[in-house]
Write a protein that binds this DNA or RNA. Structure first.
Lengths: 186, 186
DNA sequence: ACATTATCGGAGGGGTGCCTCCGGATCCAA
DNA sequence: TTGGATCCGGAGGCACCCCTCCGATAATGT
């Protein structure tokens, strides 16, 4: 993420306040991951071992809290694009997509976010595209991926599968592999 | 569905009562489709133009209502397996899976149900397998579908994509097509 | 040590949903 | 038409969640 976060949420100065702030973010990441955007704020405060008032002081609206968590996840994801840069086209794309799945503890929420509309979401979306789309384009240029697929198609396919339930991690990988295989030229 | 519904919910005798019963089912189908299993029962009663008491008289628990809707959808789905019986293996499988997507107005709910556990869900699951698994097996025997894929893999992949959001129906079809393509042997 | 001031946390009012209960409306058979 | 069986529907008690407000608490500078 190149610029400052577009949200006016700042990490507090005092030591105890910082502890609470971080605990809230961690709890929120967990809760949003489990229940999606609708997670109970009082539950998040409880998980963080903090009063509900403290939550609202740091994050006046649900949106503020969610965006802060979300931006963190996306930043992390964007950074991983460099790490795959020197792999062959197909491997680069696939391993980045695998991180797309793994890094987003905000699983349920991230797919909801694909459709949502706000300045921040638009920003995050464009960041993801900025780092991810070239990976797809490269694989297409190399003739590995079919040319009629868009990056948006790919993302939605992956995030749909991420949100789905599987009996175990092995099945998730297997199914993900099948779907990714569908991207390749024949 | 071969046997009687395993749930003890019966359509009432009196004309007005039957009208309400049916209105409730229709409203529930809608609401579950939009909001998943957690849809508000009071909202369902409102949509049906009926008091909340009437809802509870017909369906003492949320489970009863959901199961009744769910069974209806599954029965309908199972019946469609015959209609594709005389297509070539791959086409048969694909068009049945397309109906799997289309028929389940209970969209969000159906994927939740894949993981849930109850006598009824087990029953429905086994019915789906009974009609669907042979379609996959046939395509595999014909050499069209890779042999390492299970029916469960396929279903979860499809239902994951069903639950995901897309910008329009065309994209949904396109992505579905990509994923299905991953099932084929190369 | 102590005052200052940022921070805490939960009580409380308003909203919604769950489910029960029963007086009153409605249907239908005779 | 009419009486009894059936069915209706919403009021009301409980639980949870949202968000605000403010007295109590604890960190920090001197």
């Amino acid at each position: 993420m190149s610029a400052e976060s577009p949200v006016a949420v700042r990490r507090p100065q005092r030591a105890d306040a910082r502890r609470n702030f971080d605990a809230l973010l961690a709890a929120a990441r967990e809760a949003f991951g489990e229940h999606g955007t609708e997670a109970s704020l009082e539950d998040i405060a409880r998980r963080a071992g903090v009063g509900i008032g403290t939550l609202y002081r740091n994050f006046p609206t649900r949106q503020d809290l969610f965006e802060t968590v979300y931006i963190g996840e996306i930043e992390q994801l964007c950074r991983t694009a460099d790490e795959v840069a020197d792999l062959p086209p197909w491997e680069a794309l696939v391993s980045w997509l695998h991180r797309f799945v793994a890094y987003t503890a905000t699983k349920r929420a991230i797919s909801e976010a694909l459709n949502r509309d706000s300045a921040m979401f638009r920003h995050c979306r464009s960041e993801i595209y900025r780092v991810g789309e070239p990976l797809l384009a490269r694989a297409q240029a190399a003739g590995t991926v079919r040319p009629d697929v868009t990056f948006d198609d790919t993302l939605r396919m992956i995030s749909g599968l991420t949100a789905a339930g599987f009996v175990d991690a092995a099945q998730r990988e297997r199914v993900l592999g099948i779907a990714l295989d569908g991207l390749r030229t024949r």
